[in-house]
Design a protein around this nucleic acid. Structure first.
Lengths: 190, 190
DNA sequence: CTAGTTTCCTTAATGCTATTATGCAAATGA
DNA sequence: TCATTTGCATAATAGCATTAAGGAAACTAG
């Protein structure tokens, strides 16, 4: 048999593409093997098991998302930075729904530490530099921002907003306006 | 063989308990059958298939969540209502993580219409009556509220906040303060 | 209280998935 | 060119979802 030239990286990238096409939960060892024209057992020489494969896709997605966010953030501050970061986040989730879903799985501390998760936290804090918040308000604001972005994108992706005709893009813009306003006037319990 | 007395309702309730114990994705037809001491095939007389079972758990969870939110909301207005609703939402997710996860699956329009999803939308709008918002701002605000609640609860549940020592309860309180502030002064792009 | 009917669960079978052990063939390198 | 390493296939085990067919329990009628 001619060899398929499998590597962990190629499998991971193909799994990520597959996730965007058929959904992250449907990415199975068998489906990935079919895509390469090999038997499922062949994959086990390159990845430990199905969970290892999922984690690799998650780490890839986190890195890609961090890259995109970093580019969007470059040279911006204040509300510009907030909107650019948020749009990068939402844009990635829309273009790569399977990868985005992968990025949500729980990583053990070791993997998370080695992943781009830290870059995400640093970038979110970088946004807040334009708003002059000190701890612990900064941590609270980071959590709120992350919650709002993730919640909005998740609900949009699973059709949670589709029962109302109002354009989702407009609600997104108003939501970012709201976040900007509340960050400018933090603490918010006036 | 003595009969197990299976019904769709008993299966659904048991599946919900199982979801809270072992996680929603681990609720399988086989695991549920084991819990009742019957063979997996026995369940198919009461539920159509595994997906039907998942949807039933989702509908149950949505109804329970709506009940809890309605109770919390009774007799409150303004920020009191906002906080009570949000705490009910977060409390349910913490007490019933498996049910909460179930409530996030996509329902087809027919099922969603018959479910408590509408009650949720009505209650969120009821909260906003204390803030004097008219359309389309109201829809934008509903979407932002839902996004923030869901995002925060999801991230908290999967450990997304655990790498910072700041107590999550405090960040939650500040986030609700922020939402209250921005609702009082909507539109937020001043 | 017994016979017929319905209901519920079991058995049996198929097909998909994950995973491991074993073997062969291709690539590598001395 | 021969030996070694590496990569994929084959084969086997096991779990899950699902359907078809059979038997026993519960219900119903006379």
């Amino acid at each position: 048999m001619a060899r398929a030239g499998l590597t962990a990286d190629r499998l991971t990238r193909a799994a990520a593409e597959l996730a965007d096409e058929i959904g992250f939960p449907n990415v199975t060892v068998s489906a990935l093997a079919r895509r390469f024209g090999v038997k499922p057992a062949a994959l086990y020489a390159h990845v430990k098991d199905a969970q290892d494969l999922r984690v690799r896709v998650a780490v890839l997605a986190l890195a890609e998302l961090a890259d995109r966010a970093a580019t969007a953030l470059a040279g911006r501050a204040g509300k510009d930075a907030l909107v650019a970061f948020a749009d990068a986040y939402r844009g990635y989730a829309k273009e790569h729904p399977g990868r985005y879903a992968a990025a949500q799985i729980e990583l053990d501390d070791e993997t998370a530490h080695a992943s781009a998760a830290r870059r995400h936290a640093e970038m979110t804090r970088a946004i807040l530099r334009g708003y002059d918040l000190s701890e612990p308000a900064q941590t609270d604001a980071v959590r709120m921002l992350h919650s709002t972005f993730h919640g909005f994108v998740s609900l949009e992706r699973q059709g949670g907003f589709s029962r109302t005709p109002r354009a989702v893009d407009l609600s997104w813009a108003r939501t970012l306006d709201a976040l900007d306003a509340v960050l400018r006037d933090w603490p918010p319990d006036g």
